[in-house]
Write a protein that binds this DNA or RNA. Structure first.
Lengths: 215, 215, 215, 215
DNA sequence: GATGAATGAGTGTTCATTCAT
DNA sequence: GATGAATGAACACTCATTCAT
């Protein structure tokens, strides 16, 4: 009886994890597509291929689910950022790499942008309530500070650059272009997502940021 | 008879205009606060101090109302941009002024940011359906192009700068900081909206943008 | 002043009559198409090309308007029936003529059928409340009674025929065919409204009714 | 475990069926009383003793519910008609029996008449959209055709009688009397629903129909 | 762990009707 | 006589959520 039920317990756990994962993925897509207010629990269940009741079994309610989705999203980008290893690179290369990473990450994870928007629409209430999210407090700013310091000491970077300001600027340059892509396309009648346009944007952003940090 | 009825007709029209205006303002605030999906027609009516039915008298439905709000928002910023008269200024001053204007406008019209977010969440569908919005196609880009050209000919600006890229960058620098202010504050535990922090941001942005355009 | 205003008064009256007539016609069509519950005051105003408020000026409310429409409809068919002058015809011809008239009248006034349906759905409440309708108490039954009596005395008709029963039967034969035409067509997959089908129906009904009254 | 859950599953299904049945009955009464436009979903829920939301759980919307009610009504009368076994009777008796059945069925199922009216008001759109209704294509017409043929061969019936025409006539004679009973009573000031009046009507109808088919 | 049935409180929208001129 | 503006009550329909098993 012991081994058997043990196995079943493990299997059950695996099922449970898979279900939770399916729900989180489905919820992320739904929230990203429709926002918190527009998301439908029914559709999340359908997307996950699971019974709606199960969502409430694992997550208390819609708000809690949204919070879990946000936490997971932050967890993911933070992990990716950690892999960048900026400190092993030459300062200018490190900055360029960060610009590129940010651009590519937003491009490949468009849901992240709309989730961020939704989180901010609700004044980041869900993040403030999430210990985990606050604890994930990006080490990137510290890392970026070090890179800037290296560059300054090396003589290639200007001094007095606030790493947070720089981080926000790097993010903002990609974010606005991608997040408002539809509005901009509609108003200026120019497709901003062609491969060529995307390359031009990346070049432009590198020019702007490096033009600023380099002496 | 003529003058009298004329006056009353005018007054009636004024009432109608006032009602429509009240609805639009209320709707703008509600949509900005809760997004399209989270906005409540009841609350819009309440905010406007008018009967809910009247909203449907003047605007077809929620979507149409949202579109009207967006149109009005764009109309407003386009008007303000027009007043900048960048061409009368020295090129570097003009660029600085645009950066400042964008910053201040976003700061003073925080609803504009969330409306933009909502519009993009819905892939700018409401703008594409709005002839008016597309027709407002900002003359700012053209103006900015001329400024850049003046600067280049004058010898102070670098060449080859795409005015649209620059415009998006200027907007993005302010936008991300302000739009994600709550998230950033929550995660980095630093209040980004103190007068000091705001001044620092403005200085930083001018440095970044001018560092880029100036030779 | 007298002649002038006199003329205007007449003109006004004419306008008023025209407006009332337009409203009644519009209402008849709307009620016939959608029933009492499904009819929309807005659409009636639109159909009539008049302001909605005017309907309430002339008719108290929707129910009263419906009653007026019914009264008018009955008035009209009663007038047409009166013109038949059945008594001047040979009994068998008179009966045949009544069958034909009923058929053609229903065919040419399809709204009459649906109005009748609506009236009965509401248990003829609107007719009971209408003195006028009750006063129009068809002289047709009396006329029909005389025709039957002539025929009987003449020796061609059977005796003991209740004119009301006969009238109901004549009406019913046309009514069911036309009123349920859509249902019957859908279920039996046979178009009952082709000229040929219509002729066959008329022949059949004459056969049935005359087969009954003739000895 | 298996038997237990099996039983409960069945019970649940029975509950679900009971709920659906309750909704259909309630809807049939409500639609019959007020027509499609006048029927209220709230009242249907109340009549069924169930939550309004459940109606939408089982039936898509009001129109679909109406369609389901119509389907059920047709199903029911078709089943009853099938039980008549007209072919086992002597031709004249068969016809008389059909007249009686139609009369009694309409009398005992007054909702059927108003449902039919509503269906026709909407041009049988709900039937056309219902495959099931069309498939129920009454075998009665075929049966009636055989009866007529028997009678003709036997020498008691006239020839050349279209069974569809006859069916429509039989139905129409009962239908008009019962469906317009209120209007007729109001106008002719005669109660058509006393037992005596009802008997007279049945006699009259048999006379009319048999007078037609018999040689 | 998983699910079908059920629900109370909304949600956008519509309706007949009235006000004011 | 005629009308544009305004409204309260209701309407079909939806939503997040819970019950029972």
């Amino acid at each position: 009886m012991s081994k058997d039920t043990d196995t079943t317990a493990k299997e059950r756990q695996r099922d449970a994890d898979r279900s939770q994962g399916a729900i989180l993925s489905a919820a992320r897509d739904e929230f990203a597509e429709h926002g918190l207010g527009g998301a439908r629990m029914d559709r999340i269940a359908e997307r996950a291929g699971l019974n709606k009741r199960l969502i409430y079994y694992y997550f208390e309610d819609k708000e809690t689910l949204f919070q879990a989705v946000l936490e997971q999203a932050y967890l993911h980008i933070r992990e990716e950022e950690r892999k960048l290893n900026l400190l092993e690179l030459e300062p200018a290369t490190a900055i360029r790499r960060l610009v590129e990473f940010t651009w590519v990450y937003y491009l490949e994870n468009p849901q992240f942008l709309t989730l961020l928007n939704s989180a901010n629409l609700h004044k980041a209430r869900h993040l403030q309530e999430s210990q985990r999210a606050r604890e994930m407090n990006s080490p990137l700013i510290a890392m970026l500070g070090e890179v800037l310091e290296h560059g300054r000491r090396e003589g290639s970077f200007r001094g007095g650059v606030d790493p947070l300001q720089l981080y926000v600027s790097i993010a903002g340059l990609s974010y606005f272009y991608l997040s408002n892509n539809h509005t901009l396309s509609a108003i200026f009648g120019r497709d901003l997502m062609t491969p060529k346009a995307r390359n031009e944007r990346l070049t432009h952003m590198c020019d702007v940021i490096l033009g600023y940090v380099l002496k």
